[in-house]
Nucleic acid binder design. Sequence first.
DNA 1: ACCTGAACACCGTTCAAGT
DNA 2: ACCTGAACACCGTTCAAGT
Lengths: 207, 207
Amino acid sequence: MKKTRYHHGDLKNALIQAGSEILAEDGIGSLSLRKVASRVGVSHSAPYAHFVDKQDLIAAISTEGFRMLNERFLAVGEHFQGNPDQFLIELAYAYLQFATERPAYFKLMFSGVLEKEKEYPEFVEVSKQNLNFLIHLVEQCQSAGLLKSGPAEVLAVSVWSLVHGFVDLYMERQMPSTVLDHEGVQNLLCIVLNQITLREIRLVPNI
Amino acid sequence: MKKTRYHHGDLKNALIQAGSEILAEDGIGSLSLRKVASRVGVSHSAPYAHFVDKQDLIAAISTEGFRMLNERFLAVGEHFQGNPDQFLIELAYAYLQFATERPAYFKLMFSGVLEKEKEYPEFVEVSKQNLNFLIHLVEQCQSAGLLKSGPAEVLAVSVWSLVHGFVDLYMERQMPSTVLDHEGVQNLLCIVLNQITLREIRLVPNI
DNA sequence: ACCTGAACACCGTTCAAGT
DNA sequence: ACCTGAACACCGTTCAAGT
């Protein structure tokens, strides 16, 4: 809020915000420290008072992305409580939706731009939250007879692999157009998801 | 072979080769046109006689990567002819192995570094070959009763999504260490793969 | 046809200096 | 404590000029 002050007040968050905007507008290739700095109206070296690195800024933006994905997961969770069939398909759909609506974020988060993620505790923390939510969801699907029994953690990894792989290949335009044109993305995602379910699940239009 | 000539002879391939080497040695962040040029001993503007862009060079290197992956697939195919159970697990393992042995290549190929892949016909061609091989393999697994029946193309997309997602998340260090330490990567990949098989398949040590 | 060298507009990062 | 400006070593890309 309080901008154009000579000490600015909250430059760190302003830089993260500006970085997110540049990412959304012009893609990952245009995300430079100097551009971020100039967008908030500070000198190109000002960011170094708040981030040790470009990597450090990227870690913050990436963490923000995982937080956004997390929010979508939680929204799905709250909306479909006690209906595991819908749970799984809506979670997958939320994943796909996030990727298509915020492609640059998705790319930043899952394309190894951030080199040493283990060194950023906030990043590790929010990643862990995402996985824990997924494990919890898998457990509910298991007790509803929708998924195989067995260690929920392992099954969560399977579900995540399938959904992430599908969405990633879709974003990379590696999905064969023959199949995409015929089925549509959402429908295809549903069919793919059914490879690991015990009962057939169906796509519902509303969220 | 004929180097240090003033017209060089085969600069285009030499640049691709040098780019591959830099990629393998120092990672994707160090891959610059200028460095590639200096490695083969030409001026920094010489590459522009053979590539319109940095993207153009990246397309060539990326295509090279898909060709390498293709070769590994074919090797698996030749080795395990008529044994669909081994087919599937070995294919997944080959995918994982390629990613771990050539992480920079894997990242380059599947991280959206190449912006408009559709504009590079060789890239499109080799991608198509990969998918066709996978479809063919899925058909064999289907007739052996290892995979669900149904359109092989759709199932191929499912298999690929699962394997790619697993390997990608593993490379991004998003796999929970709890499960990784307990199972081991290859074993976990096998367990994950079993989520889509009708019969249980097991990991075999040799390739 | 293929390559060079200077030039331009960008980068990330550092550091002495200012408030 | 927070920010600026000059400086350095890098980029991608262009273009007139050389062979």
